[in-house]
């Protein structure tokens, strides 16, 4: 089944083109996904940085009401899924969701990522951390609120000068729009992939069939007819797509017809003709290169 001429021509092309197109699309999707995720991270970083800078002034002024308002207002933005300010022990002090800071609420970080980050021995406690694709469905950033000389010496509340981190601001935006865009991109890429595959494989198959397989099939059919005894005039008309091969085949059939005709008129076998003149007369007319070594004679082979 996979061993004939058509299979040998089509199967490797199909495998190579399909594989490379799918591979290219997968890689392109990975690149685009990575770029879009980086863009989303940059966006959440900028938003968190803005909140952090606004909150810092309110903190220095010990203006808790302003701080609560800033956090609450940012929390009302449609894209913001979560905004919290934790103290250094991991307790929620301010949140975009008022229920989290209501009296009687747990007020402890319930997010495993946030809990891990706020552990005193966590090595990257003083660095900005990101959480992408977690269970919460948020693209989150955590910015540590670092101790500054102004903080430890402020009148409002005292922090020891050797405490590097005073708290954390975490902000998460929903990854749903990104997921939706990526889903759309994926489905469009599948359609594009199928289109390219149908066009390239179908196109190659059609071209091969038209320019190669059909002429070969036609020649095969002619050979079969010739073997069955058809003369050159009875053979289907040549389309000349195989060029020299087709001409030579027809010439061979013509030579056989002439030899048969000569044999019928003279009554002797074409192979008994002196020096094979019945064949030589035809062979010699067109192309000396087609003469057999025996027909050409010993002098021509030397």
């Amino acid at each position: 089944m996979f061993n004939n001429l058509i299979a040998r021509a089509i199967v490797p092309i199909t495998i190579a083109v399909t594989g490379f197109v799918v591979f290219g699309c997968l890689l392109l999707y990975t690149f685009i996904k990575s770029d879009m995720t980086d863009e989303a991270i940059l966006h959440v970083d900028n938003l968190a940085e803005t909140v952090s800078k606004s909150a810092r002034y309110a903190m220095m002024q010990d203006d808790r009401e302003s701080l609560r308002n800033i956090v609450g207002n940012v929390g009302t933005l449609a894209q913001v899924g979560q905004i919290r300010i934790y103290d250094q022990e991991g307790g929620i002090r301010f949140s975009g969701d008022p229920q989290e800071t209501a009296p009687g609420a747990g007020q402890q970080a319930d997010d495993p990522w946030a809990s891990k980050m706020m552990q005193p021995d966590y090595p990257e406690r003083t660095k900005t951390n990101h959480n992408i694709g977690g269970d919460s469905g948020l693209i989150s950033v955590s910015i540590p609120i670092l101790n500054e000389s102004k903080c430890s010496t402020a009148d409002c509340h005292f922090h020891s000068a050797n405490e590097p981190v005073l708290g954390f601001l975490t902000l998460g935006i929903s990854s749903e729009p990104l997921e939706k865009t990526l889903d759309l991109l994926r489905s469009r890429m599948i359609v594009f992939c199928l289109m390219v595959l149908f066009l390239s494989i179908g196109g190659v198959a059609a071209l091969l069939r038209m320019n190669l397989f059909l002429p070969i099939f036609r020649l095969t059919y002619c050979a079969k007819q010739a073997v069955a005894g058809a003369t050159v005039k009875e053979l289907p008309k040549a389309d000349n797509k195989l060029g020299r091969l087709e001409k030579d085949f027809r010439q061979l059939v013509q030579q056989r017809d002439d030899a048969l005709q000569g044999w019928q008129t003279t009554g002797s076998s074409p192979f008994d003709t002196e020096n094979g003149t019945a064949f030589d007369s035809r062979i010699g007319t067109d192309d000396a290169g087609h003469r057999t070594a025996a027909a050409a004679g010993p002098s021509q082979n030397s």
């Binding site: 996979f2 199967v11 490797p12 495998i15 190579a16 399909t18 594989g19 490379f20 799918v22 591979f23 997968l26 890689l27 990975t30 996904k33 990575s34």
Partner: peptide, 22 residues
């Protein structure tokens, strides 16, 4: 993230090679 990309390229190369061997 990149599992399917390697899988696809690997299957393509090894299928072609397998077809040639066969």
């Amino acid at each position: 993230e990149n599992l399917w990309a390697i899988f696809t390229v690997g299957m393509t190369i090894l299928s072609l090679q397998g077809y040639h061997v066969w």
